[in-house]
Design a protein around this nucleic acid. Structure first.
Lengths: 335, 335
DNA sequence: TTGTAGGCGTTATCAA
DNA sequence: TTGATAACGCCTACAA
């Protein structure tokens, strides 16, 4: 049997309620404090979270809901969330919904049933009412990666617009005038932002935006593969291409390899997200790198703040900067 | 306020204990059964796991302890574990210990404090007493990826020996006689097995095992990089190399690219673990693929069995087969 | 088959 | 500051 408050009470000769008070930060005579601490040490006492939870209806548990556990971008964010929360005694229940909206709802219900104290969510598009549901239950919530329109909520974003802007700008500076983009789904927030950055920088530099150079994929490997080939078949093909997520970057690279397209001679290339990838591919890829650690830590810290009932600054919208790694996949074009 | 058994009792006019009995699979009059089910539906009743847990000292929670959350091999196993457990109402607390033995112990303690009902562990070498600790507490435990000597425990393994055997055999069949291996740490079980398979197949085919062609790395990218270059500098370099985990495969590929080594002309290559990688690299890589889904599902199912107090077949040692994908990275050597 | 009553380990209220 | 006591929601003898 595990030791309980009762045991501590016996050991110290104090009452249960005094021990409980001490445990929750109340004032206790110096002498008693020492006594209690000694008892806790020697008896190896740990509060029973379930009993406590039953009384306080707090579970010291938070749910993290992400689209997939087979995606390094997501899991490495989770990893950083988890280590922050753990320090405060919270355990993290990770659920993925395999990119399936139906599952998203189911898993959320699961988390509700488990009575998590808070939730970190990376929402799929179109499921905005899920977010509303969470908020309606007053469960503290931090969103990651995208905002929901007309809903006030703490959110950690990446500055996708400027990420694109800076990436494409480097291509322009190096003389490229026809630049293709493999963008994401039009209903996904991050995809919209990344596309906006592309368009804006072209406009800022007085270049025309050619719709035939804008391809919308679904963020999966296959569409990266197909769209890259489509781009190469355009009447006047681009001299450079910018791919806006990890999976499509992989797909594009596969297409490039299988079709003997040369980087950067046939096409200059900027990809997204994964540093290892950048080095594996030859020549070394230029990529936009997202600050996964910061994303995770920021989300966790905001959630902890809310868990403490601190509503300061609500809603906190954090926008983190990406990093642009320029490697050997970009060619200078003579003008 | 959430609805409780009490509410169901009121709604149905039955007593709390009858409801409870029903909930736990006891016999109830057909008429009452329907009544209760109706009440549960309309009042949207969910048992309070904390109250139940307080009584039964079960948390309906299992802990999964893996070396890292930034490794697709691990996280995709976790993903499959999680979806099986979820169906049975268990939530999964994932902890990673960032490849740090100190953390491993800490996180385990965390799981104990959270009173998880069971644990799935992928243990680091040398921390065998952790496993013993878990067993001593009688917490159901399933090991993944490696066994512990002199300890009886359910475990899900991959047939690493034959994985290596088959991979290297393909190289031999294609005429290779000097085959290098980038093996893992000598104290890691899987690494030992993979090396054994390499040695055995060489012996079976009457080839001599040349120690200068066996390099031990630490399963990290960097060592894959270094060791591949070392192998190429051996007096009589190998014509083929077999790399025994994902990270070192990446490292090797980077080294190959940066040094303009050609696959398969300069060297034939078989890597490990990641299917995407195989396609990204040009030419397409041959690789050993581990059955991540089976690993996860098997582990989860065994754990569930134990959670049900079913000790049948203890200890269950499952050994799963790998798959060998042969692609374009292997050259036929004329003899 | 159903109901009564006690207790799981904690927190919170109120007196002392 | 401390202590007695009543919940929190559920399960489980035991009695009816």
């Amino acid at each position: 049997m595990a030791t309980t408050i009762k045991d501590i009470a016996k050991y110290t000769g104090l009452s249960i309620s005094t021990i409980s008070k001490y445990l929750n930060g109340g004032n206790v005579l110096e002498h008693n404090r020492e006594l209690i601490e000694e008892a806790i040490q020697t008896l190896d006492f740990k509060v029973n979270e379930m009993a406590r939870g039953l009384r306080t209806s707090r579970t010291m548990t938070v749910g993290v809901l992400i689209p997939s556990l087979e995606n390094i971008f997501f899991t490495s964010i989770v990893s950083h969330i988890e280590s922050i929360l753990l320090k405060e005694g919270y355990s993290t229940i990770v659920c993925d919904f395999k990119e399936d909206p139906g599952l998203e709802e189911k898993k959320l219900q699961f988390l509700f049933d488990k009575m998590v104290d808070g939730i970190v969510l990376m929402p799929l598009p179109g499921n905005d009412n899920l977010v509303k549901k969470i908020i309606a239950r007053k469960t503290p919530l931090v969103l990651i990666d995208r905002m929901i329109n007309n809903v006030e909520c703490d959110v950690v974003l990446v500055d996708n617009l400027n990420a694109s802007y800076n990436a494409v700008e480097q291509l322009i500076i190096r003389g490229h005038r026809r630049i293709g983009i493999i963008a994401g789904p039009q209903n996904i927030y991050t995809a919209q932002e990344r596309l906006k950055g592309y368009i804006r920088v072209l406009e800022d530099y007085g270049l025309k935006v050619d719709p035939s150079l804008i391809k919308h994929g679904d963020y999966q490997i296959e569409s990266g593969y197909n769209l890259l080939l489509e781009l190469m078949k355009v009447e006047q093909p681009p001299t450079a291409v910018y791919v806006t997520n990890y999976e499509m970057t992989i797909g594009s690279i596969i297409a490039i390899n299988e079709n003997n397209i040369r980087i950067p001679d046939d096409i200059s290339f900027i990809g997204f997200d994964n540093q290892d990838l950048a080095r594996i591919v030859k020549p070394a890829l230029s990529i936009v790198v997202q600050p996964v650690q910061q994303i995770g830590e920021t989300a966790a810290k905001i959630l902890l703040k809310r868990l403490r009932k601190d509503q300061g600054g609500f809603p906190i919208v954090t926008r983190l900067k990406t990093e642009l790694l320029i490697r050997d996949s970009i060619k200078n074009v003579e003008s």
